[in-house]
Design a protein around this nucleic acid. Structure first.
Lengths: 136, 136
DNA sequence: CCAACTGTACTAGTATACTTAATACAGTTT
DNA sequence: AAACTGTATTAAGTATACTAGTACAGTTGG
């Protein structure tokens, strides 16, 4: 369910946050579904429980999950996660437009690019992974 | 010409790289124009020359500038920088489409968002008249 | 030639963020 | 009470960004 990409420059806890947020948005994890316990997931991923805890704390801060002491962490209402994603989309879109202009692209070219990407990229697909494995 | 944002989480050298790349793309810095010397810019920004050197090395790797030992660093052909930007745009657009779908947005909503951002976000990169798109 | 400028390379130290580790405490369930 | 759950704290290891100092190499102009 959760895969850590060690070639990713982003910290582990951030990858976990992103991944769970995606799983909630895709509907894989439904409302009130329990997340793996901090210690369990840490063992499964062979990382420290503190790192998981940090990710869960951030997810709770974002409203994607809620925690109940003694019971576990559970998926919150999807709307919170969806709203966050929409905010992220707006921020990223701003940067994208800026860069596209610097690259000398026209509005039509950008629209065309987005259009073709919209076809390729299937929403619920497991293509979420950053893809590409690298070894060292 | 160069401003460091210490509230930015990205490292200084990366900001410098991004800034110079933008200046080249915007046409502010023309081909073969000299960049500030490593020591000069370091003094001006009150940071270490090594940090500037690191930024310049990265810019050279990207093909945005070229270095001549004993003389200085100079702006390379804009095409290289522009091609790189276009590649970046494609990568970012891919991530954007994915997130937009997760946020439950439709293709039309994303197009509309990009469209409105295109108006707001002015960039001096319009060297040759790409203009002509219909706006009202 | 030589001083003063340029880029380049290298080592060492510091600061911060990420991660691990161990421990302790609090609440739930059986 | 035992075995789970979340939560908090402190310490230590590691990687990266940055600073600092030094040294070397090439260019330029007096």
């Amino acid at each position: 369910m959760i895969i850590i990409d060690y070639t990713d420059r982003r910290p582990i806890y951030e990858q976990i946050v992103e991944r769970f947020q995606s799983l909630v948005l895709c509907g894989v994890l439904e409302k009130d579904a329990p997340l793996p316990s901090v210690r369990n997931l840490a063992m499964e991923l062979s990382i420290n429980p503190n790192t998981i805890q940090r990710a869960y704390t951030e997810l709770e801060r974002r409203g994607v999950i809620y925690a109940v002491k003694g019971k576990g962490n559970f998926v919150a209402d999807m709307q919170a996660a969806r709203a966050l994603r929409e905010k992220e989309v707006k921020e990223e879109a701003g940067r994208l437009v800026h860069k596209a202009k610097e690259a000398g692209m026209t509005k039509e070219e950008l629209n065309g690019l987005l259009d073709s990407l919209w076809q390729d990229n299937k929403t619920g697909a497991s293509k979420q992974g950053v893809g590409g494995e690298a070894d060292d």
